[in-house]
């Protein structure tokens, strides 16, 4: 299985936004045009993080996903935002997503996480773990490294889903804080199937992240909105010993 480059599309009030520390959102465009462009230039996966769920009904999100699918999108879609029960997750999959992103709060505070696992299969879940080294509570909540280890201990050792780790303090930055990433990777020794996000905005950092055994994918956000060919150029410039997919 080759390593992946995923696009993270943060949605606020129906628009894609550039996100900074998961607090400041600046609109950059409409979802469907961006998704079409990302697919055309060979993105491996699209992760939609909808932060506007408090003001919009879940039916609106399902309509949003259906409108994406009507564009003949044949790229894997992972959707997160506002999932609080099995029914939410089931409807999102039926509307066209392959996987759902579920907040770590759902794992810590209820049995719902495992109910969704049981209904959809573990591989259909991405557990979202925002890591905040500044320990300042962000818009989406945050964990420190001790939290990370205790949350991971709640998962069975053979759990088959992926864990998306977002470095809150690097979200929107030009580069991740490698000191903090390395601290995290030490905590994550022995783990697999981790997606890293937060500040991965150039080929060098992404290639470096993909070279670690624990990492199955790197999620890229704001960088992909800068220019039309950003996905293709990014992939062409990644120098890594691991294989990545180039579109034809």
């Amino acid at each position: 299985m080759i390593k992946r480059i995923a696009a993270t599309l943060v949605i606020d009030s129906g628009y894609i936004v550039n996100s900074y520390n998961f607090k400041i959102h600046l609109p950059v465009g409409k979802l469907k045009y961006t998704i079409q462009r990302l697919q055309d230039f060979g993105i491996d996966e699209i992760i939609i993080l909808n932060t506007s769920h408090s003001s919009t009904s879940s039916q609106d999100f399902i309509q949003l996903l259906k409108s994406i699918d009507s564009l003949h999108i044949s790229t894997p879609i992972t959707y997160g935002g506002g999932i609080t029960c099995v029914s939410d997750a089931r409807e999102i999959i039926r509307a066209g997503a392959e996987r759902v992103v579920v907040s770590s709060k759902l794992l810590v505070n209820s049995n719902t996480f495992f109910e969704i696992c049981s209904y959809l299969g573990e591989q259909a879940l991405v557990l979202h773990m925002p890591i905040d080294h500044t320990i300042v509570q962000s818009k989406i909540g945050g964990h420190d490294l001790n939290d990370f280890q205790s949350v991971m201990n709640l998962l069975p050792s053979n759990w088959g889903g992926e864990v998306m780790v977002s470095f809150v303090e690097s979200d929107g930055a030009k580069s991740p804080n490698w000191h903090n990433v390395n601290r995290f990777l030490v905590c994550a020794i022995g783990l697999k199937n981790l997606i890293l996000a937060g500040g991965f905005a150039n080929a060098q950092d992404i290639g470096r992240a993909l070279s670690f055994d624990q990492i199955s994918a790197v999620a890229v956000g704001n960088y992909l909105h800068r220019e039309e060919l950003s996905v293709r150029n990014l992939k062409l410039n990644i120098e890594t010993a691991v294989e990545i997919r180039h579109s034809k």
Binding site: D69, R90, G96
Partner: peptide, 14 residues
């Protein structure tokens, strides 16, 4: 009762 119905529908219509 399960399955990614919407994406399959679009794919086969295409």
């Amino acid at each position: 009762g399960v399955g990614n119905i919407a994406s399959l529908t679009t794919f086969f219509r295409e």
